[in-house]
Structure formats: structure tokens, C-alpha cells
Amino acid sequence: EGLTDADRDVAVLLRKTKKPIVLAVNKCDNNEVENTYEFYALGLGEPFVISSEHSKGVGDLLDKVVSYFDGLDDEVDDKSKIKIAIVGRPNAGKSSITNKILGQERVVVSNVAGTTRDAIDTPFVFDGKECVLIDTAGIRRKRGIELESVESYSVLRSMEAIRRADVVVVVFDASEGFNEQDVRIAGYVHEQGKPSVIVVNKWDLIEKDQHTINVYEEKLKEQLKFMDYYISVYVSALSGQRLNKIIPACLTAYENASKRTSTSILNEILQDAIAIAQPPSKYGKRLKLFFISQSGTNPPTYTIQANDSKLVHFSYQRYLENCLRRNLKLEGTPIKIIFKDKKDED
């Protein structure tokens, strides 16, 4: 179409903003540079020749755009703030929970699954602690998502939100029961080593008696037995029931994930555990554990010196993990135990 009056009007408005401006001339499928000369009249700098249909010149355009990001302060990525991601299947009530927690209509809520298309970060303060709540797009099974569709990119953004979060809230829909996709999402959170809170939403739609919540909790434990450290909260985003327990549960999980324990206390726990159940033997050789220390946080990571780390059986590692959890109260967070041969430390 060439340069139009509308282009000139937009250029006038943009110059008034005093912000960096990048000019792109689209639909140059054959790299017709000569068709862009008239756009210099806009006074917006050198135009980038692109073809969005054929993905030509887009890389250079993005490089130019990103070059203006260096000097910006990204408050949301401030490491002093606790980032809480809310994830789950489509239409589980994630956005409704987000709005109720924030006390404002921050994200669009609809009964139509897939309303939220991007991860939305909202800073807030709870009990004097600065936090960021990240509402995400619903995560469906891969085979139900069209490749390179808007939904596929939305799911990638949701996965990225899990990776950058300090705590992850996984929302289940009580009215539909637990299914494989719920477990997959929780499993991904576990694989990323994130503290987690399981929120069972729409609890108001369940017919209940005095045993109902115990029955659901047993089902939950069975489905998520690979991550039995989670904190569970049963809520109704519609009525607001127990929503006030979600953020305190998140902060508890985060504090436990950030906890440091002195080496002396850890070795007391280790010696008590060995006294109760001796380490296993293999090929006629018994495992010996000499020393334990904490080597990291988020999640808590413990390094144990052993005579031969190959002798460690999964069941004994699990036993030691349970001993640490019982003594250190590590509710809501995964923990990692690393076994190193003593000679590796010498």
C-alpha cells in the first residue's frame, strides 16, 4: 500500500511518547528494499524490511527490539519477591482464585476453557512479604494441542512460569475428580524441584459428610505418592471458602524450601537413623555413611559422604529422606540427597 496518511498520524503520536521506536515495513516478500525508501519520511529511523508470512527479517527486527530492554528494571523478576505460579488444567478455576486472592478483576474469568492465553504476573504484598502471583494458561494433554497454535505457545509459557516460580500452586477441579493430566502437571512441578501446594477447587459442588475430605485426601495421596510432601487446601473460588489459606500455605512451603540446618543437627539425625535401621549391604560389602551436610536450598539439598555410593538402595535413600522430613518439618518442599564417595571429598 505504501506510505499512507494513517501511517503519518501514527508516527506523530509515537514521537510524542518519547519512547524508543522501531519501524518495520511488512509484506516485503521478495526483499524489495526500494519500496521502503518513502518510509524514511516518517522520521522514525531506518525501517526494517520484513515478511511476516515468510518469516524474513523478523530475527533482525527482534534483535533491535530486545536491545532496548537492557536498561529497564524488571520489578517482577526482582529476586527479593516470592514468585507464586498458579497452574492446572483449563477451566479449573485458576483465574478466579487469582482474582479473589488479589481482591480485583486482574484476569478475565469465563466458563469457556482456555480464556487465559498468557502468564500474567501481578505483584502484591501479604503479611509484609512482597510476592508476585503468576496466573497461567490451562495445560491440556499434548496430543490435544495443535502444533504451533496459540494454545501451544500458551502452554510453553505456563511451563516457563513453573520453572521461574519459587512456589507452585497446582489447582485440581473437585467436581471432575483427579485425572492423568492433573498428575502429569504435578509431576512436572516435582521434576523442577519446586515447593508445591495442591488446591482442590470447586469444593462447594461436592456432596459432603464428615468423612468426605478424608476420602479425597486419601485419593490425593495415592495419586501423588511420588510427592507426598505437598500441602493440600480444599477451597471454593466461587464462595471464597478457605481461599485465605492458600498464600499462608505457599509461604510455609517457601520458608521450608529456604531452610538451612546446622551440620551438627543433621549428623545427629543421620546417626539416629543408622542406629534404627542399618545401611544395606551388596555383594558382601556394607554401605557406610560417615557425614552429612547441607549443600543448598530451594530445594534443600544434603550431601552424605559414603564409602561407596553405588551401594545405596532407593528404599534406604527414601528412609533417610523421611527421617530428615520428620525431624526438620519440611512440609511442602521436595528435598534432594546426594551421596558422594569419601575419596571424592579428599
Score class of each variant (00 low, 15 high):
1 E>H: 13
4 T>Q: 12
4 T>H: 04
7 D>H: 01
7 D>M: 08
11 A>E: 04
27 K>Q: 10
28 C>L: 12
30 N>I: 08
31 N>E: 14
37 Y>H: 11
40 Y>D: 13
41 A>R: 15
44 L>W: 00
46 E>K: 14
49 V>T: 12
50 I>G: 06
51 S>I: 15
53 E>Q: 10
57 G>I: 11
59 G>E: 10
60 D>I: 07
61 L>H: 05
70 D>I: 00
70 D>A: 12
76 V>D: 15
77 D>N: 06
77 D>H: 05
79 K>V: 04
80 S>M: 09
85 A>W: 00
86 I>Q: 02
90 P>E: 07
92 A>G: 10
93 G>C: 11
95 S>I: 10
98 T>F: 02
102 L>V: 05
106 R>H: 07
107 V>R: 03
109 V>R: 13
111 N>F: 14
115 T>H: 06
116 T>R: 08
118 D>Q: 15
119 A>S: 10
125 V>E: 15
126 F>Y: 14
129 K>S: 14
130 E>H: 06
130 E>K: 13
133 L>R: 07
135 D>W: 00
136 T>D: 05
137 A>M: 08
139 I>K: 08
140 R>S: 11
141 R>D: 14
146 E>G: 10
148 E>A: 09
153 Y>K: 13
154 S>Y: 01
160 E>P: 03
169 V>G: 03
170 V>M: 06
170 V>D: 04
171 V>S: 04
173 D>Q: 09
176 E>S: 15
178 F>R: 06
186 A>H: 00
186 A>E: 01
194 K>N: 04
198 I>V: 12
200 V>A: 11
203 W>S: 07
204 D>Y: 06
205 L>S: 13
206 I>Q: 06
206 I>V: 14
210 Q>G: 09
211 H>E: 13
212 T>N: 09
217 E>S: 15
218 E>R: 14
230 Y>C: 03
231 I>W: 04
231 I>K: 05
233 V>Q: 09
234 Y>D: 05
234 Y>G: 03
237 A>P: 00
242 R>K: 12
243 L>I: 13
244 N>L: 09
246 I>Q: 01
247 I>T: 05
259 K>P: 02
260 R>H: 09
264 S>P: 03
271 Q>T: 11
271 Q>W: 11
272 D>L: 07
274 I>R: 09
278 Q>G: 08
280 P>F: 14
290 F>L: 13
291 F>Y: 15
292 I>V: 14
294 Q>G: 12
294 Q>D: 11
298 N>D: 12
300 P>M: 00
303 T>E: 13
304 I>W: 03
305 Q>A: 15
305 Q>S: 15
306 A>S: 14
308 D>K: 07
312 V>W: 02
316 Y>R: 09
318 R>D: 05
322 N>D: 07
331 E>N: 11
335 I>C: 08
336 K>W: 07
342 K>Y: 01
346 D>Y: 09
346 D>W: 04
